[in-house]
Amino acid sequence: MTNFLKKQNFWFVFTPYFWLVLFFFIPLALIFKISISVSEWGMPPYRDMFAFSEEGLSINVTLSNYLFIFSDSFYLRSYLNSLNLALTSTLICLLIGYPIAFYVAKSKENIRNLLLILLIIPFWTSFLLRVYAWKVILQGSGVINTILIKFGIIDQPLSMLHNHYAVILGVVYTYLPFMILPLYGYLVKFDLNLIDASSDLGAKPFKTFIKVIIPLSLPGIMAGSMLVFIPVVGEFVIPELLGGSDKLYFGKIIWDEFFVNRDWPIASALAMSGIFILVVPIIIFQLMYAKYHFKNE
C-alpha cells in the first residue's frame, strides 16, 4: 500500500513539476538566452550562440542588448512611466477600495452578501469590455462630453481620451476589485469588539482607525496592493485602448519591439530586465514581509 502511496505521490509531484519546467522555466531561460544573443536579419532573427565555422567554435554572447536599452532614455522612461502608473493607481485603488471594503465588511450579514455579489459581478465581466466602456464614455462624442455640452458648461468637447490620466482611470476601474476583495477578506474576519475596546480605552474614532484597524488589516492592504501593482507594471491593453502618445509604457514597448521591429533580442532583454527590476524585488519583498509577518504572529 505504501508502494501505491509512493507511486501516487510521485505522479502528483512529477506531473506539474514537468509541466512547469517545460512551459514556464525553459521559456524563461530561452528569453534569457536570446537576450544575450546577437541580433541579425533572418529567421530566427538572432545568431546562434554557438557557431562552428572554419575558424573553429565561436561563441556569440553579448551584453550589447542590455547596454543599448539602458543607454537609451526612451526605454528607461517607459519603465518609469509604468512604475509611475502602477504606483499611482495602486494608491488610488487603496484610497477608494479601503472605505468600500470596510463598510461592506461591517454591514449586516444579509446586506453584506448582496453587496459582495455586486462587487464580484464586474470582476467576472470581461476585462477588455470594461476598459472599452471607458473609451465609450470618454470619447469626444462620448457620454460625459454630451452631457456637459447639453448643459452648456462647455461648447467644445473636452479631449479626455488618449492620455496618462485616462490610463490611470482605466487601470483603477479594472483593478479595483483586486484591491477590494482581499481587503474585504481581512476586514470581515476582524472583530468589531476591537473597535469598541479601543474606544473604551479612550481612543477617538480616527485614532482607533490609525492605531488599530489599519495595522490589523495590513496583510490585506499588502495583498491587494500586490495584486494591483504587479500586473499593472506590465499592462498592455489599457494603455493601448485609452492611452495616447504622451507616454509610452513598458508593456507596449515590448509588444512593439517584438511585433513591429521584430527585434527579438531587444524584446527579450527588455523582458529580462523587467523581471530583474520589477519582479525580483517584489518576490524578495514578499519573502521578507512574510518572514516579518510570521515573526510577529
Binding site: 506539474p16 513539476y17 521559456p27 524563461l28 528569453i31 498592455f236 515590448i254 523587467g274 520589477l278
Partner: peptide, 26 residues
C-alpha cells in the same frame, strides 16, 4: 518547485506571452 508554482502569479503576462511564443518557435 515553490518558485515554479508561484512565480507565474507575479509574472507580467506580456513577459509570459513573449517567452512562450519564443519557446514554441524554437
Amino acid at each position: 518547485f515553490i518558485f515554479l508554482s508561484s512565480s507565474p502569479l507575479v509574472m507580467p503576462e506580456i513577459i509570459l506571452g513573449l517567452s512562450l511564443l519564443l519557446f514554441f518557435i524554437s
